[in-house]
Write a protein that binds this DNA or RNA. Structure first.
Length: 559
DNA sequence: AAAGTTATCAACCGCTATTCC
DNA sequence: TGGAATAGCGGTTGATAACTT
């Protein structure tokens, strides 16, 4: 049976087919030899029958042989895909059940875009289905201004992380998720890995730690654009701005009082219902499981630089996100709403949302680079001439905002020059980076843009020094446990270079981290907190110090 | 009713890892 | 050991149905 027959049978000939080139001559996609035109586009029922028959006879695999033996004018790749996604037995068709949806969300929180791995947990479902579902979902939720993950998942993640940390995930006693850490050839001290590993299960997008050297991990794992995921460059600003207020759904932008009818988006409700969540979430502060605020706390802890091991945050580690997902975290999320971001969103928001809520932080990690990309790069530069930060950052608890401000600013100003156009270490031209960082007009020129007055609404934020704000409990917790969500913990660790037995560029890392998280973010955030429009100074490299984020949203004042 | 928009699904493409020779 | 073949994965695109204006 020829493809012509098939086409005539179903009357289907895709656009691709008509223009399909001669596929062959050793094409790796597996066409048959002899210059045969392989068909593309939708499969016909007769083609399906041929393929099914072939697999019955010969079994799966050796897909390139299908064409030869069955006369099917399809490449092996296409045959495999068709079989896997549509023809193989025990495939489930139809919409995902609520349970499946819930599972997908959980799995995605743990695995990221590992569709095939996720599919393994969903019998009868294909990776393609899951992928499509997820991409649709994030679009939907983005449009609805809903967080990508339900608070439940975030809270669970936090709890798991906390539990892991409390049960020895830090000191290497309990190596969690070694299945995800299949190789151990990292040059990273165990203590660091443990810290990350401890969070890996709990925090979405914590990388699987592939076989990476320290530098490569730092260069890619942390800072990679896909992880820092800021606004996708292709997303229309109007859309972003329009959606931003609802990023942290459920809070009145003006007074911080839960206002859940703000998110009575049908889609969102359906989604929430789909995994059994009463969404919008019950924000009852008396709830002993302050779900919705877990992320918030974490995120604000992140911002104010006071971390509690009991309030772990994922840190700016975000892996394996599809590009679309970065749209999810909306520009201005911090600035336009105060409702608690879920874990990831909070982190994203932390990274990407300029304090003013008007700065595009896509500049931080547009493509294949990001925070630690810059960090390492900065470190090199710093170590070559600007090591004055080492001492301060090494002892993170003593670093003051002022200590870092100048340094960071200088760094931000000068390092970019060092990088030089057209390509920055972030994979951006400096020009493009800063152009992309151009703040959205504070006056809200965009059609749907919210006025600045709404940029930092909900929670009553006091821009106060951290040490005046953080609760004693938080300090206790912080003091009793290393918090590996903080880079400065890593700095504080005595890294031993396994090859040399000596210190492992600690100063370099100190500098880099300190510089990376230097004052600009804090300033911007402070301005955000105070409602003062800010510039986007220094955002090009995501400068904010973990210990240098004086402004803090007082948790006690959260709704 | 028509045009525009969005959602969904199916398929392709490029890349990487693995296997085979 | 290196290159080709194969398998698999994730991202993206295109077609079309459904929905909205």
């Amino acid at each position: 049976m020829s493809h012509l027959t098939n086409e005539s049978e179903d009357g289907m000939l895709s656009k691709d087919q008509t223009g399909s080139p001669l596929i062959d001559e050793g094409n790796s996609s597996g066409s048959a030899g002899g210059g045969i035109v392989l068909k593309k586009g939708p499969w016909t029922s007769s083609e399906d029958a041929i393929l099914v028959e072939y697999v019955k006879k010969h079994g799966e695999g050796n897909w390139n042989a299908v064409q030869k033996h069955s006369g099917l004018f399809r490449c092996g790749k296409s045959c495999r895909l068709r079989w896997a996604n549509h023809l193989r037995p025990n495939l489930k068709k139809g919409a995902f059940t609520a349970e499946e949806e819930r599972l997908i969300i959980e799995l995605h929180a743990k695995m990221g875009n590992k569709w095939a791995r996720m599919a393994a947990h969903l019998p009868g479902r294909t990776d393609n289905e899951i992928k499509n579902y997820w991409n649709t979902r994030i679009k939907r939720r983005q449009r609805a201004g809903l967080p990508l993950y339900p608070p439940e998942v975030c809270f669970q993640a936090l709890q798991e992380s906390q539990q892991i940390q409390n049960t020895g995930g830090i000191n290497g006693g309990d190596k969690v998720h070694h299945d995800l850490l299949q190789t151990n050839s990292y040059e990273i001290p165990d203590v660091i890995l443990d810290g990350f590993k401890a969070n890996q299960d709990a925090f979405p997008y914590v990388p699987d730690f592939p076989n990476l050297s320290t530098s490569s991990m730092l260069m890619k794992g942390f800072g990679s654009s896909q992880y820092c995921g800021f606004m996708a460059p292709t997303m229309h600003r109007q859309k972003r701005v329009r959606e931003s207020p609802a990023l942290f759904p459920g809070y009145n932008e003006r007074n911080g009082i839960p206002l859940f009818d703000q998110i009575q988006d049908d889609t969102g409700d359906k989604i929430a219902q789909s995994f059994g969540l009463p969404y919008p979430f019950d924000p009852d502060p008396t709830n002993k499981d302050p779900l919705p605020f877990a992320g918030m706390q974490g995120s604000h802890a992140l911002l104010n630089g006071n971390f509690s091991a009991s309030k772990p945050i994922s840190g700016p580690v975000k892996l394996e996100l599809p590009s679309l997902q970065y749209l999810e975290t909306d520009l201005g999320g911090w600035g336009t709403s105060s409702s608690p971001p879920p874990l990831l969103e909070s982190v994203d928001a932390f990274i990407q949302s300029p304090p003013s809520g008007t700065v595009q932080l896509e500049c931080l990690s547009p493509r294949n680079s990001g925070l630690l990309d810059a960090l390492l790069h900065e470190a090199k530069t710093i170590s070559s001439g600007k090591n004055h930060l080492s001492d301060k950052s090494a002892n993170s608890s003593t670093v003051t905002p002022g200590d870092l401000a100048d340094s960071c600013l200088n760094m931000c100003e000068t390092e970019w020059e060092d990088y030089g156009d057209p390509i920055s270490p972030l994979g951006h031209s400096t020009t493009s980076i800063f152009s992309e960082c151009t703040p959205i007009s504070a006056s809200g020129s965009s059609l749907d843009e919210h006025p600045p007055s709404e940029t930092f609404p909900g929670c009553n934020v006091k821009a106060e020094p951290v040490d005046q704000v953080w609760t004693p409990d938080g300090e206790k917790e912080t003091s009793t446990q290393l918090d590996f969500s903080r880079p400065d913990v890593l700095l504080g660790s005595n890294w031993i270079d396994q090859s040399t037995g000596g210190p492992k560029d600690q100063a370099m890392m100190n500098d880099a981290v300190a510089s990376l998280f230097s004052d600009d973010f804090g300033n911007n955030y402070k301005n955000m907190a105070s409602g003062t429009p800010t510039s986007n100074q220094g955002w090009g490299l995501g400068c904010c110090a973990w210990n240098n984020l004086p402004p803090v949203c007082q948790m006690s004042e959260l709704p």
